[in-house]
Design a protein around this nucleic acid. Sequence first.
RNA 1: GCCCGGAUGGCGGAACUGGCAGACGCACGGGACUCAAAAUCCCGCGAGGGCAACCUCAUGUGGGUUCGAUCCCCACUCUGGGCACCA
Length: 832
Amino acid sequence: MTAPEMPGRPEETVGYDPTAVEAKWRERWVERGTNATDLNGERPYYQLMMFPYPSAEGLHIGNLYAFTGNDIHGRFQRLQGHTVLQPLGYDAFGIHSENFALKVGVHPMELIPRNVANFRRQLDRAGLMVDWNRSVDTTDPAYYKWTQWVFLKLLERGLAYKKQAAVNWCPSCKTVLANEQVEGGLCERCKTPVELRSLEQWFFRITGYAERLLGNLDTIDWSESTRMAQRNWLGRSEGSELRFRVLDPLTDAGSAGVMVSQEVTSGAVVIPVFTTRPDTIFGATYMVLAPEHPSLERITSADQRADVEAYRDATRRQDIVSRKVNKEKTGVFTGSYAVNPASGEMIPVWTADYVLMEYGTGAIMAVPGHDERDFEFATQFGLPIVRVVAAPHEGPHTPLAAAYTDDADGRLVNSEHFDGLPVADAKQRVTEWLTRRGAAKGVTTFRLRDWCISRQRYWGPPIPVIYCDACGTVPVPVKDLPVLLPHITDYKPDDSGVSPLARYEEWYHVPCPTCGQPARRETDVSDTFLDSAWYFLRYPSVPRDDVPFDAELTRRWLPVSIYIGGNEHAVLHLLYARFINMVMHDAGLVPTEEPFAKFRAHGLIIRDGHKMSKSRGNVVIPDAYMDDWGADTLRTYLMFIGPFEEGGDFRDQSISGVRRFLDRLFASVRDAKGDGAPDALVMRKLHQTIRKVGGDLAALSYNTAIAAMMEYMNVLRRGERAPHLAEVTPLVLLAAPFAPHIAEELWEMLGHSTSIFDARWPEVDESLVRDDRFELVVQVNGKTRGKLSLPNAVTQDAAVAAVQADAALSRFITGAPKKVIFVPGRLLNIVV
RNA sequence: GCCCGGAUGGCGGAACUGGCAGACGCACGGGACUCAAAAUCCCGCGAGGGCAACCUCAUGUGGGUUCGAUCCCCACUCUGGGCACCA
């Protein structure tokens, strides 16, 4: 021990110097290789945190919050005897970096290493148990070589394809956005209204995995809110596909009021529609096709052609915002009629942009009586509204003031032989009936679209494909990877719809790998989300250069034991990562379908009741707090603010309480003595605390774990007595995950020459915790009136007798007890 | 509009499976130490009443179930988030 012994008067020398202690242990950890993971070690535990984007501003307090919560869990698992792999890397490709580089006029290839170095410095200061031997940087050719390999793997498995598609185009970022990157019609990055543009794009067939991505959600240990967000995003609906015959306007000359017999409609176009309410088929009074529907032109009558084309052109030009914000419905009659397959009636066919080509079949049967949108449209254009469901108090002709969409206790009306059936029964019966007439039942539709991964930008991994006039689309051979991103000075995007790389002929001219003739490279780069969709597979295999991930190591370390990150990635990153992992599993390269056995979203840190923002000037700079208080105090305080999964409010005032706790911890160890026997009551509290903290750490309930340690500290330091070594040594271990530097220092003061993180978590001694007496809560008529200390084995009768013998309690009992509720070991309630 | 979650002292928050509401910390008040201050240590700290022992009220609002409700049920208010013309 280095400090002088001053039992009884610790207050004069309380306190420690975090700056010196933390610097010492940062160095010592590097020297000893404390944070390096032996990948062949026993009981592997893969502790993963979402890797950061290394911004120029440096580490954000939100990053630090997430990483600290992660680190504490990882350190705890290590103390539990696991070999913990806790890697961290950088997600440095993407529009964010590129835009920033353009703004400050520094090439991203110079900017990113600078930012990474600054991040690394801050991360080291925070005392994270990160194995830097297994880091990744998505912009490093040694990494994106394998991102390109992932693309080729999907191409090989028929999961990557190219198509001309209307895509979301941000006129400000000058690039295509994935649906996930459009929020309310605005670019999530720059808030510019997104336009529709038709471009040739690479897509991943994630929709083919929708059913499994949904089904597996029930099998993984994730926060319910995250799973719910994914379910909503996948948006599965089950229904039927009905076939509507549209009479050919050329041969049938169909017009209002003219019934055309089915025999003369042989040239009719059949248009499938998807519905979740086949029971309302008799109420389908018109049909609507999306303006982009391929059959629209075929069915439009000559006299309506001009109107329909004008409408289609108008909607095409319109950006998503005005389509979605303009609530009033627009549409045009096509001049054609379709046959309602249930009633045989002729119903008009319209086109309107409230029907989306991307969902279902791009055409609907409109049931204005029982669908709000159809009701609005029918009202606006004077189309017939027919009631086919009636609530208990309504009849078949009760007028509809609005769409009646409630299907709980309605019964069918105006539906021929189905009249009177409750909706639930009708759904089944009508579906069966329609199925016999050519409809398809049990059809599922997803809201999810295929993942567009093309980006017409510079700062990303080039998509590894070559176009040859003779051989067509040729994948770059794996041996030729990586397709290096060239260092070009003019990487500013333009309106051309192609990547800046397309301006560099010397780069994109390349001989065809198959025939050797002159060919051209793909000039688009891939979406940043592809970089992050597989990085967790890479960590254990760094620095292998011959494979993306080693078979043996992957089998040993995957799936990830626990993944911690922000809920803002609930539907983007987490869904893509699950998809890519599932594909790799199908390819036999990864042991499980799901990459993350357990996922927990951490909360957000706000400050003084408000979200942190530069404009508000309330941003917490981690460096400043580490200077003033030390990293250990900042870490512990962040975790003490509130439940880790909920976040909390950062208040400057409150941090002092945590620092006081660490000062007292330091003083306790320094003052502890080894002679004599430890105090029995203190030891009981200690072992209760060991149990409590262990349980809380496993459950990420860090705030209550810290409270429990503080509570123990209050017991430990009560009175003038110097603590006993046996009373403080386990406490150092409990505090170690939170405050690793001071814990190492104290561990050394306690005479250890190896790292505290190579020690073991203290065992709970149940014999110390157990007590043969307990505090019985005494209630009279449900009101607590006091408590009695009684033996554990006390019977109800004995407990009642004890209460009656106690003057302070028995005075509440007036008359004979009517009823007695006795909860052994806890409570006695006497009802009089 | 639909789907999740939340609301507890001056503040952040705690409370196992329906069983002592307010742990722990901050702020605040009082005391010890000091010439003094800071630091440190000790005591108090939901509201109202009482000299006191104690009593009454109290977990967003209004009902309900129960011996007993912060916890379960119904209705509502406010609030955070997700989805949103998805047929």
